[in-house]
């Protein structure tokens, strides 16, 4: 019962709109602070790697991007499940806003991985298991985005994309392990990235800070997008008229 009430209250558009408006500056500030600290720690304080020299500093964006690419997909799929089961509008908004952001993080992970690979492997692209999985993940994201925008009716598009996201979630582990298995068979380059037994604290702290900063960035963008989408969807509701009049 209480969960249902919480859902209802959190999902109630005017309540969420105001709450999001209050939370937004905090999230944005925290994001910038973490980003600044992480960049300073990663680019300036952390010592160069004894094997890779300065080029390893790419991990401070590569690894958080790769984490985010999966995390955002999971959020999107969870929202997809909520959309299909409870038809909650807020979950539709979050799922729709997540797709381009997740695709961006996946793209970033791919580009930084390839730029990191050039000094390490001598070539921009190798069919490394992680890069290949990220590439397929990018295709999955593009499919979700394509489906969302293919329907003229936005809610139908959101529901169709939700089904696809859930199918993708069932597939992601299968794809991941099959790619990993395929990669070990074909014995790619033996430089395994970040499989070091332990990572030094001066590198770990900036890495985690950057990961938190990326999460906060995602949250900030979600709140911004959710606010404007709610205004648009509810444009005939009394509370939106009040909001517009109050400006």
């Amino acid at each position: 019962m209480t969960i249902a009430r919480l859902f209802h209250q959190f999902g109630s558009p005017p309540h969420f709109y105001r709450l999001a408006g209050r939370m937004l500056p905090w999230f944005a500030t925290a994001c910038v602070a973490c980003l600044a600290a992480g960049l300073y720690g990663g680019l300036v304080l952390a010592p160069p790697d004894y094997q890779q020299g300065e080029s390893y500093r790419i991990i401070f964006i590569h690894v958080p991007s790769a984490w985010m690419s999966l995390f955002v997909y999971m959020v999107m799929a969870a929202c997809g499940a909520i959309v299909l089961i409870w038809r909650m509008k807020l979950a539709e908004v979050v799922a729709q806003a997540s797709a381009p952001i997740g695709a961006s993080f996946t793209f970033m992970a791919l580009v930084t991985g390839s730029l990191w690979g050039k000094p390490m492997w001598g070539t921009y692209w190798v069919w490394d298991a992680r890069l290949t999985s990220e590439l397929i993940l990018l295709f999955l994201y593009l499919g979700v985005i394509g489906l969302q925008s293919a329907y003229e009716d936005r809610r139908t598009g959101a529901r169709a994309a939700a089904v696809l996201a859930l199918v993708g979630v069932v597939n992601i582990p299968i794809i991941h392990y099959s790619v990993e298995w395929w990669n070990t068979l074909h014995q790619g380059p033996t430089v395994t990235k970040l499989d070091k037994p332990s990572i030094h604290l001066s590198m770990l702290v900036p890495l985690l800070l950057m990961a938190v900063a990326f999460k906060l960035y995602y949250a900030t963008l979600l709140l911004m997008r959710a606010r404007s989408d709610l205004l648009e969807r509810e444009r005939n509701a009394a509370w939106v008229r009040d909001e517009v009049a109050a400006r």
Binding site: F139, L140, G143, L147, A150, N171, W181
Partner: peptide
């Protein structure tokens, strides 16, 4: 739907292909 269909379906075919 044709072009979209291949974008939706082909990534899911990867494990079978492998």
């Amino acid at each position: 739907g044709g072009a979209l269909l291949s974008l939706l379906v082909l990534p899911l075919y990867v494990p079978v292909l492998i």
